[in-house]
Design a binder for these strands. Sequence first.
RNA 1: GCCGAUGUAGCUCAGUUGGCCAGAGCAGCUGAUUUGUAAUCUGCAGGUCGGGGGUUCGAAUCCCUUCAUCGGCUCCA
Length: 646
Amino acid sequence: MVRITFPDGSVREYENGITGLQIAEQISPKLAKEVYSATVNGEVRDLTRPITADSTIKLHKWDDEEGKHAFWHSSAHLLAGALELLYPGIKFGIGPAVESGFYYDVDPGEGKVITDTDLPAIESKMKELAAGNLVYSRKEVSKKEALEIFTKKGDEYKTELISELEDGTISLYSQGDFTDLCKGPHLPSTEPLKAIKLLSVAGAYWRGNENRKMLTRIYGITFPKQKLLDEYLVFLEEARKRDHRKLGRELELFTFSPKVGMGLPLWMPKGAELRQNLISFMTKVLKKRGYKIVATPHIGNVNLYKTSGHYEKYGKDSFQPISTPQEGEQFMLKPMNCPHHCEIFNATPHSYKDLPLRMAEFGTVYRYEQSGELHGLTRVRSFTQDDAHHFCRPDQLKDEFKSIIDLVQFIFKAVSFEEFTAQISLRDPDNKDKYIGTDENWEKAERAIIEAAQEKNLQTTVVPGEAAFYGPKLDFMVKDALGRKWQLGTIQVDYNLPERFDLSYNGSDNQKHRPVMLHRAIFGSMERFVAVLIENSAGKFPLWLAPEKAVILPISEKFNDYAGKVLEILNNSDICTLIDERSEKIGKKIRDNELKRIPYLLIIGEKEVENGTISVRKQGEGDKGSMKIEEFVSFINDEIKKEIAV
RNA sequence: GCCGAUGUAGCUCAGUUGGCCAGAGCAGCUGAUUUGUAAUCUGCAGGUCGGGGGUUCGAAUCCCUUCAUCGGCUCCA
């Protein structure tokens, strides 16, 4: 007998060799149908593997990550099985479960291609196979055997993987006639794979290495119920509707021109207004929090970047230096603002009493992204960071961190990203040589971040090994209205630049000391942030951000005079308002302006002229009744004040 | 950069196996209408079919090349 301990602490005895699936069946047949994998003594395993010792067990259903993982991983094998039938001689790379769904990387063979038009046929084959309720069976083999099997098959990618594995740990999984090298775990059978959808095909380098062969990656997703798949497809559709590239064009926020250059965003008037609203707001907040605004040029002497180290590290892959008529003189488009800021710091002597010094700039930087990496506003070659650098004493590090966390929380709240997570990236404890700076400083900095996060009640995950070579960092990820995660703000400790630029301040001992530098951005970049805002709000911006706050819709041209007066009052009250004087019917005007996502529609007809009022209609909500003009002005101002209580 | 797909009017899309002056809706401009809470009617204009080269009697359609866009490019068997 074996003693099995359940997550709730209860203990039951079972026959030696019982499986997770059998345990589930004994609890209830319904449960047995809903479980996909089990964690036994901390190890995620197949449900069908016998348990031969006293163990703790947790059964995983769809709602658990582990359950989904097994579900999708098994789906990837099903995809591979279907591909092997349809494309004899196809070779397999890897086929893991991912955050939503799974993929398989395959090599269809010389001269053969798989395109998205082939997906429906592959999908049907998968459905056909799944309907056969194929059992996933596990077999452990020696390294030698595994190599033989896959060498015989001609699967060079698999043999490469196997050759890197330890002998004695190799397992194979089969369903139907298809066998794959796999660690598992898998579902007991294909029975739960009810809803199957192949989503896209893409190229992917073998092992992510651009010097190696490009394989064909097929993405798919599966669900235990058709309804869940339908919901997922609706979600994808909704995401497509919110695509900032589509909305950016429709709402006339920004554009790109091949004549200007790819990846170089052009802000149109409305987009620029939105961007400016963000910048004004942020500037006001920064000034209140002791930041000094600076401004620096878009280029810098190449020697500046040799000093900073950026030239050596990124020089080859960036925009190339600009030569001048002066022999040997070269400038670079600035890829970051920090070197310029360091020189501002160096321009004046500093006492320990002056620190921390917080230097902020909406600095436009230029980075040469590979053409295939460009994507709307989120991946561009020119962008404006809401950049700032804190120059502080080592003993101020933690307080500075806290002040920035506080600022991030404040700003995210103002732009209604209520839900966000944070990640602390520390250095790899086994590989300390990669990093610059003393052990003592690193420990101090890492401790400062962790404590600051704790003291600000910030929910964080800590990831060792993810730090930059020059210091640990804290990144913020917001969750948008569709539950998607976006990385925005970041705070990074830097011991490198103060050294390279020989920054110093006079301490109370009248000796020179090295300040610590913090890089930080909250929006990240204006481009990226606006993209996230658009996708989060579907273009329905909060009032304070909306480039146009209201539009006046006269019922007929007879009321244009009065409309003009209202327009003047509102615009003089700093409420950016337009007027729709077309000789269209009111229904049409309402529709068109609703589609433009203008927050308030002000309807004016005979009644309004007589009473000196306007009829207010809120976008998406409908008629709000009539108001005096001054009433509306204070109504709008109140709403904006409520939105951004600085 | 690489793999695959796509590129027709400002936007969304038609355009059969290569064959009459390349079409539609929306947007734009005309004119009429003067309208009360999500689409009034009329007319007009708008395109070197991404650019270049080729095959052909003939190319939006086939081939080559180039540019741009889209999906991706280790969440390790």
